[in-house]
């Protein structure tokens, strides 16, 4: 995903001269193509994330679209207060790009497990939170971010993620995705049930139909293992497309949200909150059963690959 990101960012930077990339001294063997192509638009600010966020805000205040890049917790939690006050409060165009979502750096330990970042980033007003599920989505999100005015969090995996959207023998689908992706999109990945675009939402009981909304690169696990449900990629934790949720709720009795993040305030929470608000407002006549699969409010003290730790933490269906 990180390569898909940087390749797409280079393409966007050709078209958007206001794009600048800062790194907190990370991205070896990833960011160099951007640096070499745009040497005066790339800065390694050093191992100094607070300064990086503030410098990004200063550059953005002058009209630039600034990407800050580092691993998991460093461009997010480490400088959260700068992101809140300098970037979000001033509504500046800063894109926070974290690599190593969830347990991508599994054996590196808790310092490198990015498992609370979504909760914190989605609390910032107007911050779009994107969690692409495969490299195709990562490129599409990057393309979107280049013309998005304002703050975005782009939560990337690491490397060698399974390409889900290219698996259907439809070359060029990724390209098409880029033009179409909008904040809030919930992308169908493997869907057999026709989703009720025209059928009005009904309070009447319905038969068992299940959808899985996968958030992030765990999408590939879901596609590989789940056969009895329709599968969607929840590309955005914020904003949530409420109209899409209403359609899903009209179609499925059960919705499972799976994510590589703590149970608190992550993607599952965002879906439950949105559905509850829609139900309370009368927009949604019937609440589906929502099952949340996430890290059960605990740290992981064990070394292991991403797959090992996903299983250890119960992130399976």
């Amino acid at each position: 995903m990180r390569t898909a990101f940087i390749n797409q960012l280079i393409k966007e930077a050709e078209r958007h001269p206001e794009i600048v990339l800062l790194t907190g001294d990370l991205g070896y063997s990833v960011v160099e193509p951007f640096r070499d192509r745009f040497p005066d638009r790339f800065y390694n600010v050093g191992i100094a994330e607070q300064a990086m966020a503030g410098i990004a805000a200063g550059l953005a205040r002058e009209g630039l679209n600034v990407y800050i890049y580092s691993i998991g917790n460093f461009p997010t939690l480490r400088c959260m207060e700068q992101l809140r006050l300098d970037v979000a409060y001033h509504r500046l165009s800063v894109k926070v790009v974290a690599v190593g979502a969830g347990y991508a750096y599994g054996a590196m330990g808790a310092s490198h497990h990015a498992t609370e970042d979504v909760a914190m980033m989605r609390a910032l007003p107007d911050c779009v939170v994107a969690v692409p599920g495969d490299p195709v989505e990562a490129a599409a999100v990057t393309a979107l971010s280049a013309s998005h005015h304002g703050m975005m969090y782009i939560r990337l995996g690491k490397a060698h993620e399974t390409v889900v959207h290219g698996a259907s023998n439809r070359p060029g689908q990724g390209q098409a995705l880029q033009g179409q992706l909008a904040p809030g999109d919930i992308l169908p990945v493997k869907v057999a049930t026709p989703v009720g675009h025209s059928a009005p939402p009904s309070a009447a009981p319905m038969g068992y139909r299940r959808a899985v909304l996968a958030c992030g690169s765990i999408l590939a696990d879901v596609v590989a293992t789940v056969t009895d449900a329709d599968i969607y990629s929840l590309v955005f934790v914020k904003p949530i497309d409420c109209e899409a949720l209403v359609r899903l709720a009209a179609t499925y009795s059960d919705i499972t949200v799976i994510e590589e993040h703590q149970l608190s305030a992550g993607a599952g929470s965002a879906v439950v909150e949105a559905l509850s608000d829609l139900y309370a407002a009368g927009t949604l006549p019937r609440m589906p059963r929502v099952h949340r699969v996430a890290i059960p409010d605990t740290f992981c003290h064990t070394a292991g690959s991403q797959q090992y730790l996903r299983h250890l933490m119960g992130l399976t269906l």
Binding site: I55, A57, G58, Q82, L85
Partner: peptide
């Protein structure tokens, strides 16, 4: 007023970013 502050240690990084933009 150019920028909001209140939490300390924010101004110098933001100023450095603004100065960098002007320099470039």
């Amino acid at each position: 007023v150019e920028f909001s502050f209140g939490s300390l240690g924010h101004g110098l990084p933001v100023a450095a970013g603004i100065a960098l933009a002007a320099q470039v």
